[in-house]
Amino acid sequence: MATITRRGMGQWQVKVRRKGYPVQTRTFDTRADAEAWSRGIESQMDRATFVSTTAAEKTSLAQAIDRYKKDVCPSLARGGIAQMANLDRLKENLGATSLATLDSAQISAYREIMLKTYSLQTVRHDMGLLNRVLKCCQIDWGINLPRGLPTANVRLPKMPRARERRLKPGEEERLLTAARQYGGEIADIIIFAIETAMRRNEIAQMRWEQVELRRKVVSLLSEQTKTGEPRQVPLSVKAAEILTKRNVDIGPVWRITPNAITTAFMRVTGRAGLDDLRFHDLRHEATSRLFEKGLNMMEVAEVTGHKTLEMLKRYTHLNAESLAVKLM
């Protein structure tokens, strides 16, 4: 039953009471609007299709993001530090909107604005994180979204074809010759990267306390890996030789920062005439070589630290000559 009460000038409060449902209250500027709203609510209750949207109306996206930071982020890798910038960006641009009124048009507009400043991958991460926040609202926190998941009706920016750069015949020799002429640790780091498939940051942050030359293993800590999970990296003969000749047993393995590795590598590739080669391409090369040596996908994933086999598929650009040998 609906009760409509006049409250001051131009204010009409309506309350709908029905057994089995929480009391629904709303204030309108006109009695006609109040009556129309109450009829709609009562009709939904008659058909047993009514779901309260009060929580969504009273909760802004900013509040939902804050709760996600408090309740969910601590359980993520590294306490969700990697997600904080994305969450802050979403909160700044969409935070004032209530969960009840957040729609796909607003999210699409956000996507287009962000694409003018940020990379495709960053915007995709924003969208994915927004989707997870809204799912938490519905599934974990009992906040009904009257429009459903608005992110479901928004297209993600399409990523360009994945980079597939591998070293061509003679390029590794040219690269290492230029690296040795450049001096410092970059030549050894290049060889080590090709032999282990480790990322730039993982290499730069290595410490001797994590190296077990007898077992030929480097034990990476969770805070050193991109995935936030610890990993043991096997050392090939060449990789072990590089570490053995350094003859140090405590502190950082390399006396160079991640950014310095990138700078040195760019100068080396410039000298070698390989300007289109990036340091991360060495990981692609190393991963592909692991497949060419006969390791299966699960074994390669154990070495490289890829979380899903789907992510690993793009690295399997095997050398045709190696495949031809297997077909003989």
Rank of each mutant, 00 (worst) to 15 (best):
A77I: 06
V23L: 12
N93F: 10
I65S: 07
S222F: 03
K91R: 15
M198C: 15
L130H: 09
I190F: 10
K135I: 07
D281R: 09
N153D: 09
R267I: 03
R155T: 05
V248S: 12
V218W: 04
I41P: 05
R200F: 00
V23Q: 13
F265H: 11
P258Y: 05
E310S: 11
I107S: 07
R267C: 07
H280V: 06
W37S: 06
C136L: 09
R67Q: 14
I65V: 15
L309H: 03
N93G: 09
M198N: 10
T27W: 01
D103C: 03
T25H: 00
T244P: 02
K135D: 09
Q224C: 03
R155K: 15
D66Y: 00
Q106E: 12
K158C: 02
D33I: 01
R26Y: 02
V51L: 08
V23A: 12
I189N: 02
S98T: 15
F28C: 05
R89W: 00
R314Q: 03
H317I: 02
P234C: 01
A197E: 08
D103T: 03
G148W: 04
M9T: 12
L134R: 04
D71Q: 11
E171K: 08
P234M: 02
M198V: 11
E164D: 15
H317V: 03
G20F: 08
M9Y: 09
I190Q: 13
A64L: 13
L175V: 09
K245P: 00
L175H: 11
H306R: 11
D88S: 13
A100Y: 08
H317T: 02
R231C: 01
A64G: 03
D249E: 09
K158P: 02
E212G: 08
N296M: 11
M84F: 07
P169I: 01
M298F: 15
D249M: 05
T53W: 00
G95A: 11
P157T: 01
D126V: 01
D103A: 01
T101D: 14
G305S: 06
R67A: 03
G142R: 14
M114H: 03
T257N: 10
S104W: 10
L87N: 06
E185V: 00
H317R: 14
L213N: 01
D188T: 04
T196R: 03
I261F: 03
E212Q: 14
F265V: 11
A36G: 01
G142H: 13
S219R: 15
K58R: 15
T269K: 07
A48G: 04
R147W: 00
T3L: 08
G8K: 10
E57W: 05
L76G: 00
K307T: 13
Q181I: 13
G184L: 08
D46K: 12
E112F: 04
P234T: 00
M328G: 15
K70H: 09
F291Q: 04
I107E: 02
A96F: 08
A301P: 05
R180E: 14
A179E: 05
C136G: 12
K326V: 13
K226W: 13
V23N: 13
W12N: 09
A301K: 14
D33M: 12
A34D: 02
